[in-house]
Design a protein around this nucleic acid. Structure first.
Lengths: 108, 108
DNA sequence: TATATTTGCAACCGAATGGTTTCAAAAAAA
DNA sequence: TTTTTTTGAAACCATTCGGTTGCAAATATA
């Protein structure tokens, strides 16, 4: 059973749950109210998010508040790092070309 | 059939292909040499990557060179933006606490 | 104490996923 | 021209996925 952060964010409902929980801790029922699905399916999503440590629980009486482990999101950012270098380089090259064009225009 | 960038990067083989293609354009055969799988399965992955425009093709004779559409990767970065704000804020708060602790220490 | 609320888990189902084998088309090489 | 190489696509298969229904446990309320 693959269970990593990339598989976790592959599902659009889970991405929406993550966005919700980024703003505030919520119970499964409260989360489910925001989607066109059953509480149990949200529960399944929360289980997956918990398994890859993207979400943590806090029990308050019979309610369980789920909140986002924001630092886990940095793992995606870390993976993107290698590509960011590339696209920043390309952007720099574009800047260079544009600036050269501008200079030539000034000379004309 | 869901076909977005988040689903595309969910598979570890596809992530590895993306990393390979970030360095240089490659043919399906050359890509497959790097993995413990068949060329056909790599071909399937390339199809998925092509469908969500993460990869583009260039035919040279009977060979097809695949390369990464680096700008498409920015979409992930864009989604991460909302969380980056949060984790930077939290970091600022931590900085504040640490600086306060330092000041208190100096007073002692 | 009896009832209602909140939740997780198991069983089941159809669809999607990732892989393999087989085949056909196109281009290069013999 | 015949053969080899490179590739994509189709058919098939076991597994996973996302969802539903039903149930049991724990806690709060009447």
């Amino acid at each position: 059973m693959r269970r990593d952060i990339f598989q976790a964010i592959a599902d659009p409902t889970r991405r929406a749950i993550i966005t919700l929980l980024a703003l505030q801790a919520m119970t499964p029922n409260a989360i489910a109210d925001n989607f066109n699905t059953t509480r149990q399916s949200v529960s399944k999503h929360l289980r997956i998010l918990t398994e890859c440590e993207l979400v943590k629980q806090k029990q308050v009486g019979r309610e369980i508040y789920y909140s986002l482990e924001i630092k886990k999101m940095k793992e995606i950012d870390k993976w993107l790092e290698q590509f960011r270098k590339i696209w920043e380089t390309r952007f720099d090259q574009l800047e260079k070309v544009l600036s050269t064009m501008k200079k030539q225009k000034n000379v004309e």
